[in-house]
Structures are given as C-alpha cells and as structure tokens.
C-alpha cells in the first residue's frame, strides 16, 4: 500500500519574478501528528528550499507563524493536518497585511499601532527598586490577566473586517493591550492611551463583529476589551460636559 499523502496549496509571491501572487501545489506525506507548520517545514527541507514562511517556537507561544489556512487565520503550529485530511490544505499569508514574500507579511503598520497605545506600565512617579514589590491582589490580577495572554500573532487583524475596510483602525490586539494596562492597578497611563484609544481610529471604528475574539489562539477577548473601552470613553465624554468635569 502506498503511503498516504496530502496536497498543500501554498500562495507564492517572489517579488523579483512574480507579477502577482500565485498558488503552488505541493504533495507531502500525511502524518496524523503533523501540524501545518510541519508540512511547510517538510516542503522547505525536502521539496522547495525557496519557500519562505515565519516560525519560531512551534508551540503557540511566539506568535510568528500565523497564516490563513483554508481561509481562516490560524497559527500553523497549532493546526493539525488531520482536521483537513483527506481534503486539501490551502495556506495563504494573513489577510489585511501586505505580502513581503510567500507567506511572510509586512507587520510594520501593526508594530506602529501597537507602540502607539503604550502597552507598558506607566507610573505617576519613578519607582526605585528599593521601594520593593508593587503589591497586587489576585482579584486585581484577574481583572486584566486574560489580556496579558496576547502573543501579537495578528490573527485578529486578519479576521477583523474593519481592518480591511478602514486600514487606519488601531485594531483589536493593540486596543486590548491598552485596556490591559488601563486595568492594571500599578498603572497611571490611561489618559495618555486614551489619546489613541478614544479617537475615531481607536475603539470607535469597531462595529463589534467579534471575529477577533473567535480566532484568538490564546482565548483573549479583544472584542470585550474594546466594548469596555467604549463604555469608559463614553462616561469620560459626558463627564467632560459637567461644570466640574475636566
């Protein structure tokens, strides 16, 4: 009996020769323990050394290997071939990002948006190490812990229809991280982050489709973070109308 095989259709784009991206079909051995990343690595090692794709940890921690698999944004290290076999697997670079080469996308815009929301603890005063730990209760931690699980894999940006329609939208992961630091009891940077988060391009471009939360491989709920930020920003807006509001 011949060994089982699986067909992989991979979108190729080699800027020096290709006018437009084209699909290339590869036949790889089928192994029920393999994930899509294993198949891509097999192609790179044994069939076609020119295929480019990003990956690092192979264990859904680094967030490098996000691709579209049969039209859905997924981590290729977290998606088993057995869920598709004997059907074909179609692998494309993440939607809503420019293609740099093959499955590699240009993430510059995302990185800028991420930095713009200042995703780090901002304290009112510099805290010397000698001041000791900044204590937090388990309840304090629980209020934002899920948002710390984000690995910046950008699957939510590929899933979000607003990203395609409104490229200036700050987007789910960055807004969820802004919310994560706003909720942190050690942090005092909310006002600085609101400059971006409460702008039209911030939470207000979101129409609450919720696809971001559905595709997140780390069970973060960016859609909830954005809705909570909308509520808080609305309260701010009305407060500012009051004579004693700032």
């Amino acid at each position: 009996m011949s060994e089982p095989v699986l067909e992989l259709e991979v979108l190729r784009y080699r800027p020096e020769t290709d006018q437009d991206p084209v699909f290339q079909t590869y036949t790889v051995p089928y192994n029920s323990d393999w994930v899509v990343l294993d198949a891509l690595t097999h192609i790179k090692d044994n069939i076609d050394r020119t295929l480019s794709f990003r990956w690092s940890c192979h264990m859904a921690v680094c967030g490098s290997c996000g691709v579209m698999i049969n039209g859905e944004p997924k981590l290729s290290c977290h998606t088993f071939l057995r869920d598709y076999y004997p059907g074909k697997v179609r692998v494309e670079p993440l939607t809503n990002f420019p293609i740099e080469r093959d499955l590699v996308t240009v993430a510059d815009d995302f990185m800028e948006k991420l930095a713009s929301v200042k995703p780090y603890v901002i304290t009112e005063e510099d805290r010397p190490v000698s001041a000791g730990e900044h204590l937090q209760s388990p309840a304090d931690l629980n209020s934002f812990k899920q948002y710390t699980m984000c690995i910046n894999c950008m699957l939510c940006y590929a899933a979000c229809p607003q990203m395609g329609l409104t490229p200036d939208f700050v987007g789910p992961a960055a807004l969820a991280l802004a919310h994560r630091y706003n909720l942190d009891t050690r942090d005092a940077g909310r006002e600085e982050r609101q400059e971006i988060a409460a702008s039209n391009e911030g939470v207000w471009d979101c129409t609450f489709v919720g696809a971001c939360s559905q595709v997140c491989p780390k069970a973060v709920d960016p859609a909830a973070a954005i809705q909570q930020t909308k509520i808080a920003s609305t309260v701010d807006w009305y407060k500012a109308l009051l004579p004693w509001g700032k």
Binding site: Q194, E195, I196, A198, S199, N200, E201, G202, W204, K230, S233, T234, D236, W237, Y238
Partner: peptide, 12 residues
C-alpha cells in the same frame, strides 16, 4: 489624534 464625538451616537 482628536478625541471622538462618537460617544453621543454610541451611548444612545
């Protein structure tokens, strides 16, 4: 970036 006035529409 300027703060948005969308809270009026959105709160309703």
């Amino acid at each position: 970036m300027a703060k948005s006035n969308k809270p009026i529409v959105w709160s309703l």
